[in-house]
Design a protein around this nucleic acid. Structure first.
Lengths: 218, 218
DNA sequence: TATATTGCTGACCACTGGTCAGATGTGAGC
DNA sequence: GCTCACATCTGACCAGTGGTCAGCAATATA
């Protein structure tokens, strides 16, 4: 008798293997949420998933392969959230705000994206890398198509807007990824600089400038 | 008799200690240049600097403290290069190009900056962190003052421009930090997406949009 | 029930960043 | 010129990491 996908000690069918992989990714998600990128440990993922460390490497090439899969999941969720958000259109400003809010809805997304190229992609086989890039390409093209009308842009302009805002979002996010200094006595100059780099206002202001530039055909 | 700052087995005077610290940072610089962020190892820094690993921890708190010091050095060099570049003014476009070129002059700078908040600052004591933030604050304020006239902006606008372009630069740089896929067969969609995210054109185009927005008072 | 297949395990490897008791270079005082 | 006290320096050591693989054992089939 075949076992169900979740009640088994060995995953033999395709469904069962998919379920195992899913279980590992869920454990990774939980672990990442509380340990962050640097504290992310394969040993703990295994323990959380109820599986030996070696087993992880039957389902993923490397630690970064796990993180890449996690990133793709969360990126797809971001795109869905943005498409479903009715505020993502009326004005450039509300679109920018919705773009930013969707990106921070899952607090793990920006930390992952900010290491996507610099760390994650460097420890993954080219096959998996290309597959991931292709998935992201599809996701962006689909998003551009879905948003073009709402933004009153051509699909090409919408894609330009998405890539431009994407880059801006990544850069602006940096400031929010630093350690929390709220409790500390800060010199006035440091506090001013911190505020100038605060992610949300920096992003929204410049997103509007960029969208205006695109509309003007620049 | 006192030894000179560089000919000594023990650093006892302030000058000698400064020279040791400098020597360690130089070794770190060389090591980073060929190993990159992830491959950066304290053991190797020690070997390159001709010093035991334990000694490194007399001059720096942690690995990230070394990388933070390195980043500050390189950031100051970037600011100098930008101020000295006569092209950094005539038009928005040439300013944006000069901004980008200065940032990539030292190939280690962007890889370091892209991890500054997300990694480096998380493993450094608050004292050192605040000191570093203060130095960066001074650097940005000085740069804004030095460039405001040339850009035809008020100092406040110039600071806005610097922080905005800084964020954009960081985000746009991500794409250039990924692994090199030049030699590979890429599906057409992936290649298109890669080109859309190419750092230089993405940065310059949007930097001009942002500068235009600032001039327009947005 | 016996067998072949193959998913799973965990001891093991080379490495990491960081520590600290003990060795030693060095300048000051005689 | 010698001695000594002190602070700098060292490297074995620690707990941890990501990743491997020979062998164990759950399962589907005959």
């Amino acid at each position: 008798m075949h076992r169900t996908a979740t009640d088994m000690k060995r995953a033999r069918t395709g469904d069962q293997k998919a379920a195992r992989r899913r279980a590992i990714l869920d454990a990774a998600d939980r672990h990442f949420a509380e340990a962050g990128f640097e504290g992310f440990s394969m040993a703990r993922v295994g323990r959380l998933a109820g599986v030996a460390k070696g087993t992880l490497y039957l389902y993923f090439e490397t630690r970064e392969d796990v993180l890449l899969a996690l990133t793709l999941d969360k990126l797809a969720a971001w795109a869905d959230a943005l498409l479903d958000d009715p505020d993502a259109a009326p004005s450039d400003e509300s679109f920018a705000a919705a773009f930013h809010a969707a990106a921070w809805r899952d607090p793990a997304l920006m930390p992952l994206l900010s290491r996507l190229d610099s760390v994650i992609e460097h420890n993954v086989s080219t096959g998996i890398l290309i597959e991931a890039k292709s998935a992201m390409s599809d996701l962006f093209l689909g998003l551009a198509d879905g948003l073009a009308d709402r933004l009153g842009l051509t699909p090409a302009q919408a894609l330009d807007a998405l890539t431009s805002l994407g880059a801006l979002l990544l850069g602006a996010a940096q400031a929010d990824l630093g350690p929390d200094l709220d409790g500390c006595e800060l010199p006035a100059d440091v506090r001013r600089m911190t505020e100038a780099f605060a992610s949300e206002s920096l992003f929204i202001t410049n997103a509007c400038r960029i969208l205006r530039g695109i509309r003007a055909g620049h």
